[in-house]
Amino acid sequence: MKFHFHQTLFVSIRVIAIITSLILIWWIISLSGSIPVYLLPSPFTVILALKNNQHLLWLATFTTIQETLIGLVIGCIFGMLLALLMIQVPLIRHWLMPIIIISQSIPTFALAPLLVLWLGFGINSKIVMTVLMIFFPVTSSFFDGLNRTPQGWLDLSKTMNASRFRQLFFIRIPAALPAFSSGLKIAAAISPIGAVIGEWVGASSGLGYLMQNANSRFQTDLMFAALLILSLMTISLWGFVTIMMKIMVPWLKENND
């Protein structure tokens, strides 16, 4: 436990040191005056922009969080169901696998205008965008986990006369959770990207929309403020999922962090 605490402490110190030095470098560059303010605002101006546009930013953040979370939940459920279907029904596996691989060869970015056209400027097109972004890491990690149940467990359950369904439910799914959790972490980290790309292409609110507007008006400080919130959001989402997975999958080895 003590060792654990030390480790956490060191990690925190490291993270804080990295962030502080990055901000410091940023500040020095902006102070030197070699880059105009409309291209690179100083950290101070960004904080000011955060304060002055509180209401606007809060509304935008709320929209983006909403899209991200709904997309993440739907994408996870969809991804898990897909993996389960593929593992249980060979026919679906053989037919679906190529389609999924092909679907990944199309850049999701390219689909954004289409989705906005089909589903409108509202929240729906962004949710679908997020789902498209994250279902693949979820499906592939869960599928891999389900596929790699240690033979000894399968043998054991066979000599115990387990039905296929019970074997899946009590052995293969729990055994796949560590693999699944790494896919889920990736999904959590990239899910805001889906929402923001959707907002770039066409929206009436959200952080992506705000950034697009601020950009066209050379409000670089506001754009940086939105970016800051976005990255904070992504980090907290990732952290939340990581902690959740540690609680739900306590047998996950701690050293593969």
Binding site: L156, S157, M160, N161, A162, S163, R166, I171
Partner: peptide, 8 residues
């Protein structure tokens, strides 16, 4: 008691 669980 795993066997019980696997056999319902």
């Amino acid at each position: 008691m795993l066997g019980n669980k696997l056999r319902g």
